[in-house]
Write a protein that binds this DNA or RNA. Structure first.
Lengths: 148, 148
DNA sequence: TAGCAATATTTGAATCCGCAAATAAAATGG
DNA sequence: CCATTTTATTTGCGGATTCAAATATTGCTA
């Protein structure tokens, strides 16, 4: 229950500000070139990288860090644009899969270079290899311990 | 224009996920104990730490990483609760100061322990001193370079 | 110093998200 | 097996944030 030091608070603020800043920057780049918000690509990336190019709602919500209800609406929008399709599961009829459509794959491949470049330019390149490794380790642990 | 490596992408995801996870955790703690959202405290902290306990809208928007319009509404809500007050500036009548009221100061001091504990518990304590330093350095640079 | 560009902030309209409650379908226990 | 609990997802609702346009004031320049 010790007090937070000044420099520790500064680290926290750096974390919050860096996040907001970089996200805004990437969002702007994507909007300028593709007119589609960042979170859409998070969904498409998650689906693209999953075996079978499909995921349960819960898995997807987890990957993109949204609440279940938030994800439902997000998938609705993507479905309306034809980038994903929903499939009722056979095994567990409570749930459904969100499947990447051909068009969704195309949209993803088209937008990915911009997104990738943003991550590189605003985030990765600003760090040394070692910093990058250490930050990855630390933040992964933080993420893990924040779940629950 | 080289490709992003797998491990670099993982660092990015750790960054995004850690942020979302920790913010949500702290937000929940604050809501349980004080019924006031996190962003309010960001404003109160910023004001509390500023000389004169007051800031221009633009400065404040910058500190809490909101757009001008977002900040206007936020300050409106805080004003309605009596935690801040707006003062027209003498020098530049386009602008206004947001001033921390006595009640705002009290609210801040009351809530700060919870916020502080969240930052410590979900963020600082998960890291070693060295990691903390390195992460602070790296993220500060990232933040700086993301500003325009 | 009149006129026009730049800056600070607010407002209107639209979107998006989270919480809590609702629904629906498994899973579990006796 | 039936009843109850748990899990997966969706809906109703309200709040919060953004973009673009509006407003107000200042600063610059000819």
């Amino acid at each position: 229950m010790s007090k937070l030091r000044e420099d520790q608070l500064a680290v926290w603020r750096a974390f919050v500000n860096a996040h907001a800043g970089v996200i805004r920057r990437i969002e702007k780049d994507l909007a300028e070139r593709h007119q589609v918000p960042l979170i859409w690509y998070d969904v498409l990336v998650a689906l693209y990288q999953s075996p079978g190019k499909k995921l349960r709602m819960t898995e997807l919500a987890d990957k993109v860090v949204l609440t279940p209800s938030g994800l439902t609406r997000l998938v609705e929008r993507l479905e309306k644009e034809g980038l994903v399709r929903r499939e009722r599961t056979e095994e567990d009829r409570r749930g459904s899969y969100t499947v990447l459509t051909r068009e969704g794959k195309r949209a993803f491949l088209k937008a990915w270079p911009t997104y990738e470049q943003g991550i590189r330019e605003y985030f990765i390149q600003v760090l040394t290899e070692e910093e990058c490794r250490i930050i990855g380790d630390g933040l992964s642990r933080i993420y893990q311990s924040s779940r629950l």
